[in-house]
Design a protein around this nucleic acid. Structure first.
Lengths: 234, 234
DNA sequence: TGACATTAGTATCGTTTAGATACTTATTCG
DNA sequence: CGAATAAGTATCTAAACGATACTAATGTCA
């Protein structure tokens, strides 16, 4: 069994029984000042689109998330450090594999792990995605949106950083994930208010400028009362 | 073709080809001071759970959302006024229909429309749900959570009210959907700030107390800059 | 060595926002 | 008429946010 599950539409895979729905993983990694998503080359040169999302079928009795982790690891070599389901996509939009339904998962891997890339795959900045089949394009867009909306409930940024990090590194990661600049003082105030990080006694040595203190993720939390509503419609 | 699609696991349905995944609809309606979800009686008396979520299979080439609307209408008689996909559920948790995968949709119908109930179905307050199969129970919980988190992006409360409504009615609807009390002055300030409603020249006549002005939904909007982050983890 | 660039981190200020409280207004009921 | 009831407003305080400017600690380079 060689090269199993690398390509999106390659039916030679681990499971004995092929389910009628695919699992597609949108794998993000920080690249430069932007997020990048992993795509794999289409085997079939007649395919209209030359790039595909990592995709496969779930084995019998294989949990959706387990399958998604396997697909992600097959695609980039390491397990993602965060993953969450985005939703199910069907609705006539064409999919490389000939399936009625595809379940999309958004996942992230740290930048260092993402570096190990073979030839048949490539990272694309999210602002310049390659031509994808319509359904996969919809899944990519939805995954990015889901990633950004879930950043305030899941420790996604922390899963992209080493265990110890400086507050500037954390802010840069937030900015990269959200795709917008953040205010330094407000960012640190909000951090302190939620007690999300704790200071260590280590300091960064390298580089110019004043040394930065290292922090670590420490999610002890108090709940907000939450008496308000947010109207963000349209 | 009689009684088609009423029961969750009844395979006598409209589509010619049975897909391998089910579509399950969690249909909410305001009932008293609480949200209620619609369940249907299990046909099979040997079933461990006596209640099921409205569920069916998608026809070939039937869009997911179209199928979900059909299932909702079959279950309660009218089309839901708002609906959104919650996600795909599998993962070994047992489902009444013997399918690997189920796609959950959250939907709402106004209280008046929901009144027309036949014997084989019932509304259950979300705080006292009936015994459901594990996967359907998970879908119900997820649907309620999704409904509440999406309230600030979708006009769900407005879809549960008549075209003209008072601000007190709107606030009560928000409180019912969110499951918590809101502050009157802040609620109205936030409404005014977003220009979500516009006043009409009609006033409520019935009832005691000072008459209330009627408003209508008018979603002209300006975008917020959104320079901040929200840390709500854990 | 000493000015300068660079990066980290803090202080201060004005503005906005949210919740609490209490008030005014307009109607029904008795 | 006066009490009850509900709608709607005003005012105050505290917290949050963004801007700006400041201090602090390091490396670079003349």
């Amino acid at each position: 069994m060689r090269d199993r599950g690398i390509s999106s539409i390659n039916p030679t895979r681990a499971s004995s029984r092929r389910s009628s729905f695919s699992i597609d993983v949108i794998l993000f990694t920080p690249r430069g000042k932007q997020l990048a998503a992993l795509c794999v080359r289409a085997d079939d040169p007649r395919a209209r689109e030359r790039w595909l999302l990592p995709s496969d079928f779930a084995a019998s009795d294989e949990a959706l998330e387990t399958a998604a982790r396997r697909i992600a690891k097959d695609a980039c070599g390491v397990e993602p450090t965060w993953m969450e389901q985005v939703g199910a996509f069907g609705d006539g939009k064409r999919h490389p594999a000939d399936v009625d339904l595809s379940v999309a998962f958004a996942a992230v891997v740290p930048a260092d792990d993402a570096a190990a890339g073979r030839a048949e795959r490539a990272w694309f900045g999210v602002s310049e995605p390659p031509a994808l089949a319509p359904r996969q394009r919809a899944m990519l867009d939805a995954a990015l949106a889901a990633l950004r909306t879930r950043m305030d409930h899941a420790p996604i940024a922390f899963r992209l950083l080493p265990e110890m990090f400086t507050l500037s590194e954390l802010q840069v990661m937030y900015e990269l994930l959200l795709g917008k600049r953040l205010h330094k003082a407000s960012f640190r105030r909000a951090l302190q208010a939620t007690s999300l990080v704790e200071a260590t006694d280590e300091w960064r040595s390298e580089g110019r400028g004043r040394p930065a203190q290292f922090f670590r993720f420490s999610p002890r939390k108090r709940r907000g009362t939450g008496r308000g509503v947010r109207f963000d419609l349209l």
